[in-house]
């Protein structure tokens, strides 16, 4: 029953949205043709008829996206640890992280193409940069934003800096880590798509989106690939939510 209550509202809302879209309401509101925004029935039809091809292209995309998200998150957390442990020395690192993260992906992706020759590595580098940024900022906030009474308690027990880190700060950062991961999912997948726009490969969801959307009669196929990417992102997001529930059941935000 509880589970049903969790799943039902988004499903119903999605059904209503899809229904309105299918009736052409969005096309009318936005004043655009079905060539620019195909109807869901058309997109789903194309999605089903191209399922094998979509599956093959997804393999090219999902592997670097997932690996890049994990590695990027680890890198981001690691940098947050350094910055939190050495607030003054780490400040400059924070600035550097921000600069690197602020390089627009449309400049970073072609640059990484020049640096690395293997498309997988090229994509991985772009995705890691994209995913690490939100993780660093979030984890840092979690590491620092500790309730004072907990710190007071630790101090009264004469705990050292490292013990405070291990027992209070790191556990306290977990909820923020998950916020960072959730934003990281969208940042990483967007980075994946854009890096595939620039990749040498002629496969992958991003590649298919770019080229299908440019060819007038292949627009619905482009949207079918957007649908595929969306399904993948929701799956990743769901995995992160499940992990979150398992790992921090005790935390206030999940009580």
């Amino acid at each position: 029953m509880n589970k049903l209550q969790g799943i039902l509202p988004p499903l119903l809302f999605g059904a209503v949205l899809t229904g309105l879209w299918q009736l052409g309401v969005f096309n009318r509101i936005f004043n655009i043709s079905q060539l620019q925004l195909p109807l869901p029935s058309k997109i789903i039809g194309v999605f089903i008829s191209h399922l094998t091809a979509i599956g093959q292209n997804a393999v090219t995309t999902i592997a670097p996206a997932a690996v890049g998200l994990i590695l990027g998150a680890l890198l981001g957390y690691w940098m947050a640890l350094i910055i939190a442990a050495f607030p003054q020395g780490g400040y400059g690192l924070m600035i550097l992280v921000t600069i690197v993260n602020a390089i627009p992906i449309i400049a970073l992706a072609p640059l990484m193409n020049r640096w690395f020759t293997v498309p997988f590595i090229t994509k991985l580098a772009v995705i890691m940069v994209a995913a690490s940024g939100s993780m660093t900022v979030h984890a840092l906030q979690g590491l620092k934003n500790v309730a004072e009474e907990k710190l007071d308690l630790m101090h009264s027990c004469a705990a050292g800096k490292w013990e405070v880190f291990l027992r209070v700060r790191i556990p306290n950062s977990l909820p923020s880590v998950f916020s960072g991961l959730k934003i990281g999912v969208s940042a990483a997948l967007l980075a994946t798509i854009i890096s595939e726009f620039f990749s040498k490969e002629t496969s992958g969801i991003g590649y298919m989106i770019k080229h299908s959307l440019k060819v007038g009669n292949q627009r619905p196929l482009g949207w079918a690939y957007i649908l595929a990417m969306s399904l993948f992102s929701v799956a990743l997001y769901a995995v992160i939510c499940i992990l979150e529930r398992r790992l921090i059941r005790w935390h206030a935000s999940r009580r």
Binding site: S33, Q34, L35, K214, V215, G216, N217, Q218, R219
Partner: peptide, 11 residues
């Protein structure tokens, strides 16, 4: 050749 694909799509 590109305009043709849009005509094909109904534009």
């Amino acid at each position: 050749s590109s305009v043709l694909t849009y005509q094909d799509g109904g534009a």
